[in-house]
Structures are given as structure tokens and as C-alpha cells.
Write a protein that binds this DNA or RNA. Structure first.
Lengths: 197, 197
DNA sequence: CCTACCGATCGGTAGG
DNA sequence: CCTACCGATCGGTAGG
């Protein structure tokens, strides 16, 4: 009844907050700033949300859930590790691209979560990363990937690239998320160097 | 007379501030927090520094200068583009590794600079990135690199990986910055995939 | 969703 | 480097 097109007032508050947190950072964003963006008084925000941090929590955990779901789809599939890795990368990028603002907040502001939320968030993240590490490990086992690569470095490089995307990706550019994921995968898997022939 | 071993009080203040800014973020760090870390009263900080932002300014611009100097050394040298790229990457990592705390602040907190400092900082950064882009361009021209790579994507991936390093690199690990740079270069240039033979 | 307001904390200054 | 203090702003509540 009340989805995507017709955002509830609470969802509107959260979306505007995401924009604000992205621009100024969570700590530097005041509830008065947020209220102004919505055209209401600061005190009125509290009829929709319990606290400033509640907004951050829903932004971070909602996206974490989407990332997890995307990866689970990929893990179900058969096929070579390089293909799984490619699909995992594309999935991750698609989730981010659906809401780049939320993705930027997820990335840069999660550390302002208080306990126990912060702990819980970091556990979800390490789990997600480890599942990508497993895919790389699988590729090494099957001989698709070099046996001497540093798995930790590989996976950190991958996530650095992925997570930095909200900072430079232009959603109005002509490159679509899926192609971006394809190209990024190709670069990580095959490298910059021209292949011998 | 008064270098590295014997930090001036001002340098001590800036170092402690860097630790604090890294942990909590610039906006969430109060001058009272900083004073406490130094064992003095908040008001006393102002005999050493002019303002909170002055600290951020010196952290950001000092490191920017070191990055620029490192890249200039590399640009002077002859040799294939892949070699220049490798040396540029190692240089960048070495600069960061010399002070990971400052590097993390440089990366994550520069946006809290006020104008005109922010503008100036961003200009330095875009210039630095473009010079890496030129090296990649050179590699494409000479046929070392694939002709169909997306230069912007390549350079963004590179800097994502580089700049995210302060978040996960453990200075007590047995891998030295130079080796890390070597491995990262190899991964970007040659990719994860096992080479045919 | 508003008015009116709270105690806490902020960056910074005066004057020593 | 300290005491004493400033005006501004913070997240949030009471009561309608």
C-alpha cells in the first residue's frame, strides 16, 4: 500500500537524514539541520524516530541485510570460483547503486553506532568478508587463481574498491552498475597488463 | 635540535589529536577529550594551537606534501610505465606507513576542513591522482597495459585500495610496507588469475 | 507537528 | 599552563 512511491513520514526522515549524514558526517549533523531539511521543528522529529542514533542503526542494518541476501543468492549457484566472485561483486555493487547515499553512510558512519550495535555490525561485516575470502580460497584450490596470492590482501583490495565506490560513482553516468561490476571483476581477476598472445 | 625524538609540545598536541580524530572522528572529538589525553586543561591547548581546525589543517597538508614529494621522485625516473606505477604505489604506501594515524585522518577527516582549505586540499588530491592516471595512460600507449581498460576505474580502484590501507594494515605484522606495495602492484597489474604456461 | 524549555557540552577567550 | 567564564549549540522531553 505504502511502498517506494509513497514513503511513510518515518522513511522520509531517514532518507533525508542519510543525505545529511553523507554530506556532513553523522557527528556534525544536528537534528536541527535535519528538521530544517524537512521543513519542521527539531522537536517534531521525535514523533517519528526515537533518537538520532536510531536513524543510523536502521540505515546500517538495513543495508547489511541486503548485502547478505545478495551474497546468499550467489553462494547457491554452481560454477567456477571466478564466476562466483564476479557475481558477488556485481551483486554488491547493485545493492550499493540502489541507494548510494545509504551506502556512503553505511561505509563512513557506522563507527558512530554505540554498543552493542557497533559490535553486532562489525560481526556481520567480518562474516560477509570471510565469505568472499572463501570464494577466493576456492579459486586457489581449483587452480583458477594463483596459489601464492595473499588472500587477506586480495579481499581487502576488493572491499576497498567496492566500498569506495559511493565516493566517486556517478549514477547519471552512462555506465550501469552491472557493467561496472563486470569491469571491476575483470581488472581484479585479469589485471591491467596486456595478455600475451 | 628538536626533531623526532624530542617533539615540541605543539607536535605532541598534534600527534595526540591525530589519534583522537582517528578513533572518534574529527567532529566527535572535543578539545576537552584532547586536553585530557595530554593531562592538561582544555584552555591550555590554545597556548600551542590557534584552533581545533588548525590541527586538522596541518595533518592534512603535511601529508599531502609528502605524497607529492614521493611521486615527484618517481616521475623523474626512466623505465616502463608498469615499473613507475609500482614505484609510485610503494612510495605512497611508505608515506602512509610512516604515520598510519595521520594517514587515516588525512583520508577520513579532510572533509571537515573549512574553505578555502578544503578546496585547496581537493585540488592537490585531484592533481596527485591525475599524475597516476598519466602513468597508466603511458602504459596503454606503450602497449604494456590493455588498450581497453577504463582509466578512471583503474585509478579509482588503485586509490581505493591504497587509501583504505590505514584501516586494516597492521604495522606489527611481518609484512613490510615495501613488500605490501610490491604485492598490491602485482595484483593490480597481473590480476588474481593464474597465468597460462 | 508546535511552543517552550532542559541540562550538558561545545570551541574558545580573558587574565593571570 | 591554570581558573573562571562566555555565548552558542547540542539531543531530547513535557505537554499540548
Amino acid at each position: 500500500m505504502d511502498t517506494s512511491v509513497n514513503l511513510s513520514r518515518k522513511e522520509q526522515v531517514i532518507r533525508k537524514a542519510a543525505e545529511l549524514f553523507r554530506e556532513k558526517g553523522y557527528a556534525a549533523s544536528s537534528m536541527r539541520d535535519l528538521a530544517q531539511k524537512l521543513g519542521i521543528e527539531a522537536a517534531s522529529l521525535y514523533s517519528h524516530i526515537k533518537s538520532k542514533e536510531e536513524i543510523l542503526q536502521s540505515l546500517c542494518f538495513d543495508l547489511a541485510t541486503e548485502f547478505r541476501k545478495s551474497l546468499e543468492e550467489v553462494e547457491k549457484q554452481k560454477g567456477p570460483a571466478s564466476e562466483k566472485l564476479r557475481k558477488g561483486i556485481i551483486g554488491h555493487i547493485q545493492v550499493m547503486a540502489k541507494d548510494l547515499t545509504a551506502a556512503a553512510v553505511f561505509m563512513n558512519e557506522h563507527r558512530h553506532l554505540s554498543q552493542p550495535y557497533l559490535r553486532q555490525f562489525l560481526l556481520l561485516r567480518i562474516n560477509y568478508i570471510n565469505r568472499f575470502k572463501d570464494i577466493i580460497e576456492e579459486g586457489i584450490q581449483t587452480g583458477e587463481f594463483k596459489e601464492n596470492i595473499d588472500k587477506k590482501l586480495a579481499v581487502m583490495t576488493l572491499f576497498s574498491s567496492l566500498n569506495w565506490m559511493p565516493q566517486w560513482y556517478d549514477p547519471h553516468s552512462n555506465i550501469v552498475p552491472q557493467d561496472l561490476g563486470q569491469q571491476l571483476s575483470d581488472m581484479l581477476i585479469n589485471g591491467l597488463k596486456r595478455q600475451k598472445h
